[in-house]
Amino acid sequence: MHLRVIHRTTFTYAGQAHDSFNEVRLRPVDDDAQRCHSFKLNLSPAATTREYTDFYGNTVHYFEVPADHRKLVIEAASNVETTPLSARPAIPRVEISDLERSAEREMLAEFYTSSHYVPLDVELWREAQDALAEGRSDVWGDVRRLGEHIYRRFAYRPKSTGVNTRATDVLKLRMGVCQDFAHVHLGLCRSMGIPARYVSGYFFNTTRRPREIEASHAWIEAYVPGYGWAAYDPTHERVADERYVKIATGRDYADIRPVNGTYRGPPTRSLKVVVTVREAPAPVAVATA
């Protein structure tokens, strides 16, 4: 599937802002399930961007706006081609005991220990025990059952949580948005010893009603030995398929903040984020002379 994504972030300040330094993670990754054919970062005021690849393989662009400005617009435009599930390799059945014995597990330690948004409290372990009360199956089977558990037992309520809400808070509230569901899912998987990481990205909503708000999305990936990272979306109770565009991965939200920065100037500012995901025609190969 060919998708065109526009992600526009607008900061409007109550006065003149200056010395603005920013890091953004907005470029879709290239992996077995998707290819980013083009990416453009448009900035207003204009600024030179530099980039590096972070620890998790995400592309980070950074730039500075030293001069006075009342408004900062960061617009990322990407064309991405995703692979249908039917064309991806099947996820194998791997026993939990084989995961624990696998050679890779040691190197994945940070994905089954506590992280900022996912402190491995005993409450998460209890919730996971509850969800798997009928007994453990294989690795991927457990990941899916934990995800289904969240879908059924937690209510989707925009604005019920904030950017600082941790997995343990969500467990008490029993409600949240995609970011919260992903954090809880990570907590449940990790409590069961399954390495799992946070994914930020976009979801192409084919059943979208006109004027329905689109936004960034979040889901998780769990590590299945012999396969690699397999993606599951607890907010929609399904395997992430060709409608999902992945931007970045990390231990949790703290590692993948799409836009992160500091500035000097008035403390009051407003933030507006607009995301559109549309199906696009396949890029035409241009013959060069």
Partner: peptide
Amino acid sequence: LDPTVFRGDSMLGVPGLVNAYRA
């Protein structure tokens, strides 16, 4: 060192320093 990259609540550092270092 740099609130852009590390602790956002710190007033001690220099915004953009880490980027200059990286460059």
